[in-house]
Structures are given as C-alpha cells and as structure tokens.
Design a protein around this nucleic acid. Structure first.
Lengths: 337, 337
DNA sequence: ATCGGCTGTGACAACGTTGTCACGCTACTC
DNA sequence: GAGTAGCGTGACAACGTTGTCACAGCCGAT
C-alpha cells in the first residue's frame, strides 16, 4: 500500500508537507501543493484511517446499533436517514444489527466491538416504538436512542409523536364532516396504542364530541406464539350492525387498513366513497398498492434517523425524549362520503 | 484511554506479553495469563483497532455498499443476512447506502471512503434484481455482488432464481389440478419478469400443457414519472370474461396479489376457494396481513446476504452469477378450488 | 543595518499495537 | 555433565499518520 512517504518522495518534498496538503493546511506554497496533489493522483494514495485514528483519537465513525431493525419492514429508513446525515458530516456508519433471538450478552458484545473501533458516537435504533432496557455502559460515549425510549438510562431519545398523529388523522375525518368515527386499535400491548387512542380522543373533544359515543375496537391481538392476529372482519360486522354505524374508520395500522379494504370489498363497499378510511404507518408495500389510495399517517422513520444523527453530531443533546411528528400521506380514502 | 502498556504495568509484566494474551498466544504461563486478564478487566482495557490495523494491515471490517437498499422494503434483509455471517466470522460491517437520487460520483466517493478504512472486502447490494454498472476500481479488492449482476465487471454475483421459483409456483398450482392458469406479469422492464415468465412456461411444458393457451397479462407498468401503475382490476375482468376463465392465477408480485384479493372480494370471490392464487416475493406487510393467507414464493434476501458474506470470507468466489432458490411460503390461497 | 514576525518547510517524537529477534531458564538427550 | 531443544518472556523496530518544535528565508518596520 502506498503511504504518505511514497507521495513525498514522488513530489520531492517531506512527508510532513504532504500531510499538510491532505489536511488542507493553507501554509503550503501553491506550487508545492500542486506537485503533492499530482503525486497523490499518480500513485493512487489513500490516507490510512487507522493511522489517523491513532494520532487524532477520533475515528469519524458512528456506531449504529440496531435492535432487530430491518426485521420490521421499512424501519430500515431510520438507518437510511442516519446514513444521509452521517455522510453529510463526513462520517461513516459502522453497523451492528442484533437479531430478535439474540440475548443480552450479544448486545453487550456488540457494544464492546463498536467501542474497540473507537466510534465517536452511537445511535441505538429500535424496530418499533418501545421501551428498551439499555446496558449502563452505553453512557460511556455520546449516544442517541431512536424510535424508542429508555426509562433506565438518561439518554436523549427520539420517538414518533403517536398522539399528535392520531389527533391529526382524526381531524382529517372531522373536517370531512364525519361525526361517527370508529377506531380499530392495534395490539394493546404496543406502546403506540394508548397514545394513538389518546390522540383520537383529543381530536374528538376538540370538536365538541363525546369520545365515549365513538366505537373503539381492538382489531389486533398478540398470540402466545408472538404472532399478531387480526380481527377486522368481525370488528366491521359489529360496527355495521350498530344502531348508528360509523361513517368513518380510523385504522390503527396499515395492516388493519388492508384487512378493512378487503372486508369492505366483500360487502361491495368502497373506501373513500361509501366509508372514509384513514390509517397509520404508511408501509409502502401496502399503502402503495391499495386502491383507492390510502390516506395514512406516515411514520417519520427517515426523519428520525436524520435528526438523531444531526443531534449526535451537532447538538449536545439533552437527555429526554423528543417527539417527531408524522407526515400525512394524502390519498382518496378519507374523502367525504 | 487505557493502553496495553497500562495493562502491562498493572499486571507487572511486559506489554508484549499482554499482546500475546490478547491474541491467544499459547506460550504464556497460566499464572501470567491470569494476571493479565485480571488487569484487563480491572482497567476496562479495549484493544485499539486503529493500531492493530496499522500493524496487521487488516481491519476485520467488510464494506457494505448498498445501492438504494432499504428503499425497497425488506431488501434490508440482505443487510441483515450479511451482518449475521460477518458477526459469525468476527467481522464488522461498514455501511454506505447510496440513495436513488445520488449520481455516479457519489458512489465513487463512497467506494473511496470504504477503501480509506481499509475494508478487507466489499459487498455490493442492489435494491432489486437488476443489471448494475460498476466502477472498475471495485476490482481492487475482494467483492461480491448481491441481488444483481454486472455485465461490465467480472465479479461473483448472487441473484434470486426467478425462473425456478416461477416453475415451482406453477407446479404448486398444477399439482392442485389446475389446467387453466393465468399469469399476471410484473413490470416488463424488470429483469425478473421474463425469467418468471419463462419458469411459468417451463412448468406448463413439463406438465404437457400448451403455454400459448394460458393467459399472460401485464398487470404492472412503469409510468414516465418512475412510479408503477397496476392494472389488476381490468386484467381480472378480461380473464373472467374469456371463454374458459382460469381457475388459478399466478401473480408476478405480492402487490399484484394484494390487488387481486381486492378485485376478487369485490366480485364476492375468495382466494383459495373460488380461485387459486400464488404469488412472488413474500413481502411481509402484505403476505402477513392478507386473509386467506397468501401462498407466495419468498425472495431469498436473507439467504443471499448470508451466502454472499460467507463466500466473501470463506471461499475464493469464482466470477460469475450464482442463483439462489426462493423458499415457498405456504398459505391457503393456492388450494384446490 | 538590525530586528521581529511571518511563511513555508522539515526533523522528530508519539500514538498503540504486532512481528522479529534474542535472551534466560528448565528439561530432556546422549 | 555437556549439549540441545523448547518454553516463557522482553527489547526493539516498525506500521502511517499528526502534533510540536525549529529553522531558513523573506518582508517591512525601526
């Protein structure tokens, strides 16, 4: 491998001057600088990050520890956002993904390996919004938690603003004139569920409606096997047979919306025409394929990844949880009946 | 930061002996080894990868250059698989994701940055199965291409076996007794489309059927805007109004299957009961939410990631393209009418 | 003419680690 | 009892880079 000394020899100067050129030191005569740059080109010289690291005690590498990320579809957007901002700051991302099956000691080892690489900071990303128990040693370096929060550690954390999103989604339906809105709630064990329910309530109260008069049905439950089971067909049957059936349905997840689309189709009903539908998540494979197009609150995964990295690199992030708003993906499904 | 010399001082030995202990050299007296290990624990010593790198000219890091991976849902499984095997071999993954918007010079820079980190090898992952133009400098180090192939470079490559998968999927339907099978083909501009079509033909011929008598309809076309447009509703109408309507439909993509489910529901038809349906990809958000459960040929993304990394680390992979079989996700939708 | 400061350059040490070589000690062979 | 082999250990150099310091040459101010 060609080193800085080879370049110096080729450019007929000292290797120190080459170092200066590489690091943009202004105190190099233009002619010398030119010679050095030519030599670098000619020899295909690449600075050795290891040696740099040793001298400067910085690696320009950020560790990305992901807790089952990429298991859930599209949560990889966190990674993508983080990568974008890391790149913008001239950093690289060292990835370590912990699979669901892996135990705590695996996570500890992952952390250890990243530390050996002398990463300058750490992002810890969760696959879905949840409370995560972090090993205390994680406080040894600047770290930001993404898509999760930690009650045991005082780390800055970024989570999606579930409550606000639910409020916004409900407002969309209220603005279309709906007064009977049902909520098909996701898995009650999910952190997001009570928050989305609360946001639903917020909007109703704001509109002068009585939350208790609106139907909330749990449409997804976890099975003992860890799988999730959906009960949308029966929920819809229950809703439609009520004294005053809803004219709009807020789905707690795109998967629920998908099932609702199917259940409606079986009844000869079309979302956005016979019944308004709004959903959460904006999972592309679903939201991009449903017709009529689904109006859904898009999880800000990309944005969280970007902001987390920015926070880590620019800010001196205060401990505490920051909420990031969803964005609204407007389709036709929420339109006025 | 605590160094090897601090450990040596604490263990009352030379720093060289500490180095031996760390590197598992057997020629260290057990008592000494014990002392050293205690010192390492006590001081929280972590070897400095940069220094190691400099001495050994190896980084134990594999570069993962991804061409828009994580843009497509679930292609992140390639990353996950690669990570699994890298970990199993004691390597770390340095990620660089190139977004769709980015130009060629961005990719070149990404490569350059990975080289500066002295990665021991490189995985180049595509978001979907396609031909990819690679910069020639990529041949400077061991590299494997995943989910794509390169006609301009002689690199080992791994791609999903589209043709075989289509044949297997079709066989499933034939085994259920179907003799009239339609194929709703994906975007004709996709590399997978002709291969899946060929596999469909293979199975028909194998079963003594005349391919030309089976309907093939393109159900997805690219729009000038880069988006994809689905035409499943009209395709189904066309199929069902034919003289001999199909009793089974092979969908070229899960997204098509999703639309087919909806179109069938509108007609009061149920997949797996009134009409057999088999699909490709196994995109979790769709395949996990459709009822009746979808029978679909699962893209071997995880497996490709694993094998690519294994090839890179263990084998001396020969140039050329290797095909990896899909796995079959059995649902109810392919069942006998 | 002398001095002080600025500019461009280079010599040298240091970062933390591993490879090479050599040393002293023990245990075995003849 | 001398020679030899091997084991455990340490001294030292080297990896490629940057930080510190010094020096030579030039300029303008005194």
């Amino acid at each position: 491998m060609v080193s800085i000394k080879d370049v110096a020899r080729h450019a007929e100067t000292s290797f120190k001057t080459v170092s200066r050129v590489i690091n943009g030191d202004t105190r190099v005569r233009p002619a010398t600088r030119e010679r050095v740059n030519e030599a670098i080109q000619a020899l295909g010289y690449r600075p050795h990050s290891g040696a740099r690291m040793m001298r400067s005690a910085r690696s320009n590498i950020i560790g990305f520890l992901s807790d089952r990320v990429t298991t859930q579809p599209h949560s990889g957007d966190i990674l993508r956002g983080a990568q974008q901002m890391a790149d913008a700051h001239g950093r690289l991302l060292l990835l370590f993904n912990i699979d669901a099956e892996a135990g705590d000691e695996h996570r500890r080892r992952a952390f250890e390996l990243l530390m050996e690489q002398r990463v300058d900071g750490l992002l810890y990303a969760c696959d879905y919004h949840r409370d995560v128990e972090l090993p205390p040693e994680m406080q040894q370096l600047p770290a930001v938690l993404v898509n999760g929060f930690s009650t045991t550690t005082a780390l800055p954390a970024l989570v999606p603003d579930e409550r606000l999103a639910a409020q916004q989604a409900t407002r969309l339906l209220l603005a279309e004139g709906h007064r009977h809105i049902a909520f098909l709630a996701p898995n009650p064990r999910s952190v997001a569920t009570p928050l989305r329910t609360a946001g639903f309530h917020d909007a109703l109260i704001e509109a002068g409606l009585e939350p208790s008069s609106q139907a909330i049905i749990t449409a997804c439950v976890g099975t003992p096997g860890g799988e999730e089971e959906y009960r949308v067909e029966s929920a819809l049957a229950q809703l439609m047979s009520a004294a005053t059936p809803p004219t709009a349905i807020l789905c707690g997840q795109d998967r629920i919306a998908l099932q609702l689309y199917l259940a409606l189709a079986r009844r000869g009903l079309t979302p956005g025409r016979d019944l308004a539908v709004v959903s959460f998540d904006d999972q592309q494979p679903i939201s991009g394929a449903l017709t009529p197009s689904l109006t859904t609150m898009a999880l800000p995964h990309l944005e969280m990844g970007r902001q987390a990295m920015t926070l880590l690199l620019e800010g001196d992030p205060p401990p505490g949880t920051l909420t990031i708003p969803f964005s609204t993906t407007l389709g036709c499904s929420h339109r006025r009946v």
